[in-house]
Amino acid sequence: MQPPPSPDVTSPAKTPLFHSSTQYKNWRFSTEQLRVTRTALNEAAIAAIRNTFESDSPGSSSDVHFLDAHEELLLVKLYITKISQLCGHFRFPEEVEATGITYLKRFYLKNTVMDWHPKNVMLTALFLATKTTNHPISLESYTSNIPRTRPSDVLDLEFLVAQSLAFEFAVWHAHRALWGLWLDIQELSQAPPHEELERVYDTALQHIRTSRLTDVELIYPPSQIALACLTLAHPEIAASWARSKNAEAALEAIESIKRTITRDGDIPSVDVVREIDRRLKICKNPEKVVGSKAYLAKKAKEDSESELKRMRKADNVRKAVEQGDPFGEELAREANLDDDD
């Protein structure tokens, strides 16, 4: 049979689906890139906040003990564990939990905790994840089930979070890849009894959950993370899976994933994080603290700028009307509705 004799539509080359995803293209980094990005964000934030302190009252920043990039990361890590707790409480599916965690991590590759405290960012990331994974709940029932949380805590940040994610909401998860492995290993010729396989799968899934506390999802594709977790759970089964797929080379590639999960997968100690959080109260960016002097100053500046823009626009419309533009009136009405372009 000849190929469909249709017009010059060149169908895209058959690459793996994952390779055309935004995750593959925009959200994979080397360990070094992650370190550089976080350090740069941290340093830029310190410089900006120091500047704000100094312009408020000179000399006031000298004894502030700012957070370093590692401390920021520890705090984010603690809030990753809070997402899991909340998901347990709401009985959200695994996909919501995993997506919320990914959003939180990605957010802090574009922002620092000194500007945006992870508590509300965490709540917002999770709320956004319920929507992007098609498990929406109303904001009212979401916030009313979380102590000391108002709808505005979530709504105020939702846009910022979406923007920080570059509106790239689709996430490819390791637990999905593990599900694929689970289906495969049941077909292996010398597979152990089903009960044992189930235990292996459960253990591997626990390793996947641990891996969410680490950077591996920002470095490796989900399939490799899944294989690493299966190897941690049962090296022989993982090896015979790899043999069955002629993919023994994959087993070497996952060594560093196994190491990272084992090394970084621990929950940070509450005492250490509490100390970081205490210091954060002093060194957070005053421009982001609603009601502070610096916040009000920044807001006033923004408001006057947009007012100026509005006036310029209204002025143009008036001129158009005076020149007898037949659409002047309609435009004038539009201009009142529409103030942002």
């Binding site: 956004l128 929507k131 939702e158 846009f159």
Partner: peptide, 10 residues
């Protein structure tokens, strides 16, 4: 929207 970003936009 009271529930933030609207589902169809998402």
């Amino acid at each position: 929207f009271k529930d933030g970003l609207d589902m169809s936009a998402v």
